[in-house]
C-alpha cells in the first residue's frame, strides 16, 4: 500500500521538524497512541489503542526516526502488532518552506497483514489515509 499526501502547516520548517521528532508531540498526533517510551536514540516503543468502528484493538510496536536532515527531511518507521493484525511501514517526510509556513510531503509505504487485512482490504487504504490526514491536522494545531 502506497500513500502520498501534501499538507500545509502554519509554521516554518525548523519548527515543524522539531515538533515531528519530539516524542510528546508524536504521541499527541498519532491516533490512538497512549504512550511513547524512548528505548534508544530516535527509537521508541509505542502503545496504541485504536478503534476504527467495530475493529478495536491494542497494538504494541516501535517508532524509529532515520535519515534525519533537519529541517528538510527524515524517515519515520513504524512497526506494530495486535490481535487484529500487524502493520509495518515507513514514511518519508519532506518539509519545504512556503511563505511563512511549510509544505509537508509525506510518502508512505506500508504493509498490513493478519485478519484485518484479509477481511478489511476494502477499507484499508481509505482508513490509512484518514489516519495520515488526522496526524497532519493535529501536527498543524501543535505548531500553530
Amino acid at each position: 500500500m502506497k500513500l502520498t499526501g501534501t499538507y500545509r502547516l502554519a509554521a516554518p520548517p525548523a519548527r515543524v521538524f522539531a515538533a515531528l521528532v519530539d516524542p510528546d508531540v508524536l504521541q499527541r498526533c498519532i491516533e490512538g497512541a497512549e504512550r511513547l517510551v524512548r528505548t534508544a536514540d530516535d527509537q521508541y516503543d509505542v502503545h496504541l489503542r485504536l478503534g476504527i468502528g467495530t475493529v478495536k484493538g491494542a497494538y504494541v510496536g516501535t517508532v524509529r526516526l532515520t535519515d534525519q536532515q533537519p529541517p528538510d527531511r527524515f524517515t519515520l518507521h513504524v512497526e506494530g502488532k495486535g490481535a487484529p493484525g500487524f502493520v509495518r511501514g515507513s514514511a518519508r517526510i519532506q518539509l519545504t518552506a512556503a511563505g511563512a509556513g511549510t509544505v509537508a510531503i509525506c510518502d508512505a509505504d506500508g504493509q498490513v497483514g493478519g485478519v484485518v487485512s484479509a477481511v478489511g482490504s476494502r477499507l484499508l487504504d481509505a482508513t490509512a489515509r484518514m489516519l495520515m490526514d488526522r496526524f497532519f491536522e493535529r501536527l498543524g494545531a501543535e505548531v500553530r
Binding site: 467495530t54 475493529v55 485478519v115
Partner: peptide
Amino acid sequence: HSLIPAMKLRLAQ
C-alpha cells in the same frame, strides 16, 4: 450483521 461477523473474526472482542 456487522458486529457478529467482526466478533467471530475476533476483530471485535
